[in-house]
Design a protein around this nucleic acid. Structure first.
Lengths: 329, 329
DNA sequence: CGATTTGGTTTAAACGTGTAAATCGACCCT
DNA sequence: AGGGTCGATTTACACGTTTAAACCAAATCG
């Protein structure tokens, strides 16, 4: 009742507020942008009138003028894996602290084309920048015109933040040796992905001469194991299975369960990521933790910095990882 | 090289294109909006020039004129539970088919305030409408000025699409009776939530006189079980535990595992949702499937219909559910 | 053959905002 | 008292589009 109605149901503009308050549009604009250019009494009055009218600034118009939308994008290859939502959540929270809203986009798994598309859509829809977990090595520089912070891998000419995957692989190997394992199997990720490659190489390097890698199956990102992997697990010729990430570890646990192989009595399993569920008793997964929250937060900080200073020098942030011992080993 | 540069590095506007093509802005606009108002040869020429210049329409400006942003919001109480991402993914895909981009927002679990905030943010940021899974019963009608389609529950005066939760509860009860269970425990959801309430009531109604409900613990949405629930599970005085959703079923399985209770030998477990993981051997959960994908798709269809016809009559879509038998019973 | 239609194109006015520059008073100083 | 300062406010233009209305030639018609 008190609000709206005044101008015949139309949505109020700055002009309406100005008229109602008996000042100019500029004054209203100054007030609402918190530039303290106006006297306290006028300020208060304008604010009251604006509130009474239920006025809110039109984003399109202000974006048009300022070239800023205060929206950032967050491109994730999937929301179905639990890892990415954890990052996305951190991104969103930090972005909000900076006054940005977050636009989460699921770019899907068939990397190259859809990622470029996602970037294009974001740019078309006027976001200020984006943080992205990319599958493809290069971001199809078709439209380089969108400030991007890459997460989970370094990339030429771009800000990036990622965990020390190689060190994580090393930690897993050291721990396995310490536990007295000798023959191990690897469920590695697609070697086209930086993180998968690094993790595997870190492990293999540290394992050299101390662990026998009986087999090594490359598992794609889809949430099911290839038959080859299932066969390998069934073979029972290793005392430890090292997985490129917790999701695959979970699939491995599933497959082992189905094959009636006990964990950790018959075989041990290790993962990577320490996603939220890994600590649950049902999984209870020994794993390498990468600080997913910090990954997202640091990425946002980096992006905001870049938006403020487009010519700042490129920054790479490498985050530490740590081994989490649980019941699967 | 061929692109840009021409106007000194500045990002090209419609004016630049017009000048370069030797026509008026209006003509360019007509061409690029696919209104066929211009002759084929001019059309082709304008397109070529626009492409050469690397021109793309400025969203802020066109939003300013048209009042349409071609963006919809998708408000989810969490992305960490696997159910919501499944819906969100469906929403995004369908929205894209309609030419809308999707803005996923994690409203968090502490319902009321943050949901209103999410709606406000979306409205402020100029989305055309939103589809929302709400925790609170009423959407804080502070700012009703955003077309909303509610998912997972009906709501006065709004389009909604949701599964037949009550029928789902009934199915669970029938199935339990058929299996010969007698004493059951309930891990129900917050009774403030429509879906939780309906599921429980459907079950209780159909169970009346045929099943004894030994206990009933209300579990909040956080991903851990309250002590009371764990104690009840440990008591071992029931042959079946019925959970309000698969995530809680998963927690229950975890707790049972920790207590060294075997499933389904010692006790059976049933869930609700049929989220992606429930079919995995590790869980292998008997559950009621609600068509998560259709939920999202229908919601989007409803929303675009409303955007095109703001005065269309309110529609409620109720989707069927079905029982999925697996190994946990 | 002049008047009317028609299709293609342009002109020009919005859309709602931000902000530099101009304006306006009130106040101070010599 | 008159010129100068300074702070508060307004004027007025720009941002990049869309689109109704005007325009103009060429084709059509009575």
């Amino acid at each position: 009742m008190m609000a709206a109605e005044k101008s015949g149901g139309r949505i109020p503009t700055i002009k309406d507020v100005a008229k109602a308050a008996g000042v100019s549009q500029a004054t209203v604009s100054y007030v609402l942008n918190n530039l303290n250019k106006v006297s306290p009494e006028v300020d208060a009055h304008v604010r009251r009138v604006a509130h009474e009218l239920g006025y809110s600034r039109n984003r399109a118009a202000r974006a048009l003028k300022t070239g800023r939308n205060n929206v950032i994008g967050c491109i994730m290859p999937s929301l179905l894996s639990p890892v990415f939502p954890e990052i996305a959540q951190a991104v969103q929270q930090r972005a909000e602290e900076h006054g940005f809203a977050t636009f989460v986009i699921d770019s899907g798994l068939q990397t190259a084309a859809r990622e470029a598309e996602a970037i294009r859509v974001l740019a078309d829809h006027g976001v200020d920048g984006a943080i992205a977990v990319l599958g493809s090595p290069r971001p199809a520089s078709d439209r380089p015109t969108l400030p991007l912070v890459v997460v989970d891998q370094p990339m030429d000419g771009m800000d990036a933040v990622y965990a020390d995957h190689r060190e994580g692989g090393r930690l897993l190997a050291e721990y396995a040796v310490g536990l007295g394992h000798r023959r191990v199997g690897l469920l590695s990720g697609l070697q086209g992905l930086y993180s998968s490659r690094e993790r595997r190489e870190g492990f293999v390097e540290a394992a050299r001469g101390r662990l026998d890698i009986a087999w090594n199956v490359e598992v794609p990102l889809v949430p099911s194991l290839p038959q080859e992997a299932v066969d390998a697990l069934r073979r029972g010729d290793v005392s430890l299975v090292v997985c490129v990430n917790d999701l695959i570890a979970m699939l491995a646990l599933s497959a082992l369960r189905q094959a009636r192989v006990r964990v950790p009595e018959d075989v041990s399993v290790m993962g990577f990521d320490d996603m939220q569920w890994s600590s649950w008793p049902l999984l209870n997964l020994t794993t390498v933790r990468q600080p997913l929250g910090r990954l997202g937060r640091d990425a946002v900080d980096l992006l905001v910095r870049r938006l403020d200073a487009p010519d700042a020098e490129i920054t790479n942030i490498i985050l530490p990882v740590s081994l989490i011992e649980r019941g699967s080993t």
